[in-house]
């Protein structure tokens, strides 16, 4: 039994799942599900599709270099069964998983370090730039409308219109 990796999204393919496409030069493309197969048929590049492992690795979203990744390897020679070795391996899998998840969390934490400060900075900037949009809590809608009518802008427009009409008559 061998667990393969999906060509598109790099997820694990368990036996009996997915489809494989054999190109005429004998290169095998394995896909974990029809979603990945369809994306391949649409000639999409997995490095440019955001949900794939390739994209996340390329853009520094996930942890890439870690000693916990080096245990998983493709081996072409079947291992001779050894009860003690198997037992130890099964025990080690759990601990390695734990270590990996912890390191992954740390990576995520480091990545999100400046996020809160950045958001605060941006909010402050927006507030400063859009200050004229801010209405005092005491101001009501009616008073605002009154202010608008009180301005002499309307009279100005009238004068302009009259002058235009005069010109037309002439």
């Amino acid at each position: 039994m061998r667990l393969e990796k999906c060509w598109f999204c790099s997820s694990t393919i368990y036996p009996g799942h997915g489809i494989q496409f054999v190109r005429n030069d004998a290169k095998i493309f394995r896909f974990c599900r029809s979603k990945c197969h369809k994306n391949f048929k649409m000639k999409r590049n997995p490095r440019k599709v955001k949900w794939t492992k390739a994209y996340r690795r390329l853009h520094g979203k996930d942890m890439t270099q870690d000693s916990t990744f080096e245990f998983e390897r493709k081996r072409n020679r079947p291992e001779r069964y050894d009860r003690n070795l198997t037992e130890n391996t099964l025990k080690a899998i759990k601990t390695i998983d734990k270590v990996r998840s912890r390191r992954g969390e740390m990576h995520h934490k480091n990545r999100m370090k400046g996020k809160a400060a950045k958001e605060r900075r941006e909010a402050r900037k927006e507030h400063d730039q859009q200050l004229h949009m801010v209405v005092a809590p005491g101001a009501t809608l009616g008073s605002l409308a009154k202010d608008a009518t009180a301005t002499p802008a309307k009279a100005k427009v009238k004068v302009q219109q009259e002058s235009e009409e005069n010109r037309m008559e002439e």
Binding site: P15, I19, Q20, F21, V22, N24
Partner: peptide, 19 residues
């Protein structure tokens, strides 16, 4: 020996070829 239509394998996965 090669078919573009997919064919089920004994383990339940599928295989298809170019031509």
């Amino acid at each position: 020996v090669r078919a573009a239509m997919q064919r089920g394998r004994c383990d339940g996965s599928e295989v298809k070829f170019d031509d």
